[in-house]
Nucleic acid binder design. Sequence first.
RNA 1: GGGGGUGUAGCUCAGUCGGUAGAGCAACGGCCUUUUAAGCCGUAGGUCUUGGGUUCGAGUCCCAACGCCCUCACCA
Length: 579
Amino acid sequence: MPIPPRRGRVRIAPVEGRFSDFASKHEQAMEEPDRFKLERMKKRDALREMGVDPYGGRVDGVMPCAEVRAAAEPLNIADGERSDLRARVAGRIALLRVMGKLAFLTIDDRTGRIQLGLSKQEIGDQWPMVRQLDLGDIISVEGVVGKTKTGELTVWASSVTVLTKALRPPPEKWHGLTDVELRYRQRYVDLFANPEVRDVFRQRSEIIQAVRQYLLDCGYLEVETPALQPIYGGAAARPFTTHHNTLNMDLFLRISPELYLKRLLVGGMERVFEVCRNFRNEGISTKHNPEFTMIELYEAYADYRVMMERVEGMFAAAIERAGILAAIERRRGELEETYQTKGTAESAAAAGGGDRPAHSAKAWAAEVRLKEHRACVELIRQGRMAVVFGHDVLDFTPPWRRARYADLLREYNDIEMSDHAAVLAKAESLEIPTKLKDGSPVDHDVLVNAIFEATVEYHLVQPTFVYDYPAAICPLTRRHPENPSIALRFEAFVAGMEIGNAYTELNDPQVQEENLRRQVAGEGDETMAVMDEDFITALEYGMPPAGGLGVGIDRMAMLLTNSKSIRDVILFPLQRRGG
RNA sequence: GGGGGUGUAGCUCAGUCGGUAGAGCAACGGCCUUUUAAGCCGUAGGUCUUGGGUUCGAGUCCCAACGCCCUCACCA
């Protein structure tokens, strides 16, 4: 099939003035349009020839689809009837059924979908326009709200406006976009093709907003500290490096905001938090993205016990204000429906004579998920803050379980944290290296923590605060007043995943300096902290005793939206070039 | 970095033992005023990720590269 000649620049970029050169240059650089694009460009041009701008502008008074539904509800419109309710709606064409002189389209907006009815008789002169519409175009219509014979709520258009002609076809209308790589690389397609993806990101936004509001209600101040730092610290991680040209100065992207937020405590900002993007130059996994979001907070005159309450409060606020429980009840209802309908009528037709009850693949998938959804909804109805995560039901109702680090270590390994011989033997049995490259022995507390990570963490499915950590792995934490080998630190675990980390902060500048110097010198590893003299200076002016806490927002969003991978709660996860 | 999986039409997927590359959706032409993933008739659409190799013949077997997923390692 011969490729039609390129269209002239005036046709391609009819906008006058400043953008036409730009568009034309890019048009030349673009790959040869495929047959889908050519067809759609033809329709775009046909629209222009009939005097219709295929890229319309502002539309006032648009009613979201969900509001149209809500407004129609009390009118009790009978099937086949129309109401007096007039509405203007706008959205992307998700389904398109044209039959001769009547067309039904389903458009999709941020609140849902609604059917539009366009008839030649009613829209008259505009009818030829309908033939130039495709799936994926963005339009608005104005008309009256009614119901079809089959009871489908429909906006019967009296006028149609083309807002955006799409030059590329959307993915398959039934399956949507499922190729994981394409979903991440072209998230914009994923978002409009898969409405449930939009729901996840709406919930993520509401979760962050809920947490923010909770902290504001607790008297916190939201602050912003540098992401570009001359010295990195506050965590043990490898940083990204960059360079400032004018200052001729190497800089690091922050791995943690901790040392800056503590300076604010010194400055008298007694309750501060930051919604903070951190950057760590490390591995990528279902639980790690090189850039990720934390909420870190510091509260003067508090300690790590208070921080436990903050974690509980943040989750409770998020679950309530982001509508998490209602979403799970809805999901359960959908699954029940899929299971009922696809598991009976459809499968009976397709069964053909198997021995066991036949179910369609969808019904089978629904059945598998129903078990935990039913259990979860049962808990919700008892007033619990329960969510479904994979095959687990997680109960976030405060108070969460509080378990001492040493007790858990004993429970799952039958060893005492302080018993070096036992720890060494256990580490060897787990094939944890007990010697450094230079042959010197690995620090006792480091071994203990390796054992803990390997043997305890994955057991911690229900929300659990693990507290009182071995001190050597906690250089920024205050020691236990009666046992200096213990640090007043907890980590919060859910579904085997660390989701929060808190300390009773160390505010003795001398001890802090010693800890940091030991860390910098001791490990001799590039991942270890760089000495931050100014941070010590700040502590010397006096930092109030305080509790500090960091919560991983991406992981929190994973838990509350039942997402297995961190990439499903990050809009544009890092991908390799290419693809 | 190790191990496992995967890559076929715009999208979702089949492709048996190595023997001319298939379906549904989308598209194009036609019919159609109550559809619900609309339907019916017809048409077109492919560098089977890339590069080597084995073979008379490779989507299929072998080797390598690249992307993606899972997993381990790394990672307070």
